[in-house]
Structures are given as structure tokens and as C-alpha cells.
Design a protein around this nucleic acid. Sequence first.
DNA 1: TCGTCATTCAATTATTCTATTGAATGACGA
DNA 2: TCGTCATTCAATAGAATAATTGAATGACGA
Lengths: 221, 221
Amino acid sequence: MSIRNPKQALYEQFAIVAKALGHPLRLEMIEHLAQGARSVEALAAKLGQPIANISQHLQALRRAGIVSAERDGKFVHYSLADESVLSAFASVRAVAERRLAEVDRIVRGYFDARDDMRPVGREELQALMGDGLVTLIDVRPADEFALGHVPGAINVPLGQIKAWSRGAASDREVIAYCRGPWCVMSFEAVAALRSKGLAARRLEDGMPEWKAAGLPVEMAG
Amino acid sequence: MSIRNPKQALYEQFAIVAKALGHPLRLEMIEHLAQGARSVEALAAKLGQPIANISQHLQALRRAGIVSAERDGKFVHYSLADESVLSAFASVRAVAERRLAEVDRIVRGYFDARDDMRPVGREELQALMGDGLVTLIDVRPADEFALGHVPGAINVPLGQIKAWSRGAASDREVIAYCRGPWCVMSFEAVAALRSKGLAARRLEDGMPEWKAAGLPVEMAG
DNA sequence: TCGTCATTCAATTATTCTATTGAATGACGA
DNA sequence: TCGTCATTCAATAGAATAATTGAATGACGA
């Protein structure tokens, strides 16, 4: 690093972090890693990308101090370096949500929000769960569910949602959640359930936000 | 925009915001704009950059929804789009601070923190000010001071710090603040005052954080 | 209407980032 | 020790971004 004034040097360090967040694939990787540690291969499979590509992006994230790596035999498991990463992600998302009409358009256009897609807040969910009025489903894949989920939730991966809905009681509202506020799986789950005539809503946030709020997490038995 | 799945499209929107934050010059511009609206020319002068360059960076920031522009006669005044931008900046900084040893090294190396550079918190400052025990100085340039400052602060731009220190009472501690937690001017002010034998510390944050916390702001009369 | 001035646009070059490929590393089990 | 397998490295071509320069726009005042 060449000699220059420390102010510039600091801004450069901050820019490294922001730049590392500035790629769609890396953001998607971060959202997956927020669910728990992942090997390079597992992440590549989830994102449908070549392994070498994922490896390089992971190293870009590591250089920025966003993820950390831990070797376990043949595998290297990556995970988020700390919670400040999630809050940085959330802040960036907040700017995008507030300022980019495009974001709104994408969500509305895709889900055709004809009736209320208004999500359920965490407090409201806890009240509803306490009263036993609703069924809470976690629509993430089984492996992510096993690593931690909202107590009382049952795991219904997206592919099984239609089959599951056939056996569901039609007089109970269903609340779906997944990886985070913009994770599309819960949107799709709600849409599928509604098309079957069930009352369904989304939880506002996903698993990482739930955990970050200090709320209890249940592990697979 | 080509047709692709909405998940990717969302990540792309988020990435646009992060990418816009991913340049040292733009981060510096954001910190200046956090002090108040600025014309292109004023900003270019502050940063010592060609006007066309600043103009282009401003437009990159505007495309990302980070700043907004308002025409006023011949001038175009840019300002931050909303407070969520500052919190995104702060989050990115937090990740950098926590994870990048480099940041720590820069700060320590430059300021040679032999004795406690520990900053004063906002609450502590208010208590000290209430007791009338300290002198609070705002080391930003006069124009920024005029647009808003901490009540009770006096304006001592960095260039005048030595002259000012000659007339200062030697038995009162001096607290200096400027644009933000990493703004180097307050570090330099403290170093200069200490070299003159005065007790001096920095305020932890700067003006934008003070305002964002909802604390009172005084304007020039 | 015309000149002035702040800002933006357009075009160029240099630099950096991205995706892809195939080879290299390093740990495990036989 | 050797083969296997997860991961990383290295090299390449293609794409995007950055800084610079000079010309174009658009508002103001004469």
C-alpha cells in the first residue's frame, strides 16, 4: 500500500467492505451463510454456480472481513464473520427499499399483490402462536431447518407445499417464513397456499433476523 | 432490464446500492453531504477533485438512490436522500472496524496513541457541559458550523487551533468534534492541543450522528 | 438576445472486476 | 504411498468502472 494520508486510507478500507457487498451473487451468498456455515461445494450447489466461481467470491468476502473460513478435514466451512455483517446487509437493503422504486415494482409485479400481502410481525406471531390459532411453517430446505428454526414451526420445504396443503386444516391460518425478508420462498409458499383456498401470510423477517433479535431457536432433535 | 427471476433482480438492486458505496471518493462525498447540502462545485473544492469527476460520482450516487439533487438557479444542490444512508454508511464502517485489522493500524499508526485517546460519549459530554467543566470546540470549517452545531460549542477551524490554544484557560478540558467518528480533524485538533499542554479529548461521534440521535442543534445567528 | 457560469454529457484510455478453464494443493482413506 | 476429492490458484478473455478532457446544456443577468 502506497503512502497517502490516513483519511484516504480509511475510506479505502471502508470501500473494500462496501465493494465486497456490491455484487448480486455475493449478497445471495451472504443470505445463505446467514442460515449457518456452508462448505464451498454446498454453497455452489445452492446457487447453481461453478465451484471455482463461488470459491473466488468467498475469498473476496473474506478479504473484506465479511466471512470467515474454518477448515474441517477436506472441507472448508465458511460463515459470516459476525452479526455486524447482517446489519450492514440490512442497511443496504433499507436504502434500496426506501429509494428504489424498482424494488417495490419487482415484488409487486411478481406476486400480483391483489389482496393483503402484509406480513406478520414477530410480536404478532408470538401472540398468535401463544393462542394456538395459527400453523407456522418453515419453507426452507430440511438441512437449514435442522440447524435452527422458530420453536413450534414445522418444516414444509417449498417443493412439498402443495402436497402438505391437501392435509392441512382449512380453518387455521398458516404463517410462512424462510431465510429473510426478501427470500422469495415464503412469498411463493403463501401464493401456493392461497391458491388452495387456505388463509396464509408471511412472517415479516426470516430466521437470521429472528435469531439476531435474541428470540429462542429450536434445533432438530 | 432483461427477464430473469425476481430473486436475482432484487439482489441486483441491493448490489447497486452497495456498489455505489464501494468507492473511497464517494464515501468521502457522503460524509461531506451528511453535514448538509452542497453544490457540485463546493464539493469538488472540498475534496480537491475535478468538477466533472465529482459530477459523475454524484450521479452514480443518485442512480443508487443515495443522494438527491435539487436545482437552485445555476446551482444544483445535492444532499443525502434520507437517514437510512447514514446508517448504511455506519454499518459498513462497523464491519470494517470490527474485521479489518488494517483500520485499527491506520488509526493507531497515525495518531500514535500513547495515552488515552478514548473518546467522550454523547451522554458524558452533556453531563460535562451541564456542569460547565469543559470547553466544547467544533473544528469544522466555518460554513459547516453555521449550518448547525452542538449547542454551546464554539467554532475553531483546524487552521486556527494553535492560535486559539494560546488564549485558552489551561485548567479546563477541551472536547473537540467534527464531521464524524473517523473525521481526522478532531484527532488532529486533540493532538495539537495536547502538544500545547492542554487537556483535550475527542467526542466519539460527529455532527451527523448528533443530529441523527435527535439531540438539539444550534444554528448560526 | 447574448455572454457567463455551474453543471452535465460524450469520448477516450487505463484500470479493475468477472467468469471460465484447467492445473495445483492438501487432507483423507486404502 | 497412492488415489480421491474439496478447494484454491493461475491465466485468459470479456465486461464494467474510473479519470481526464473538451464540448454541450440550461439558467441567469445585461
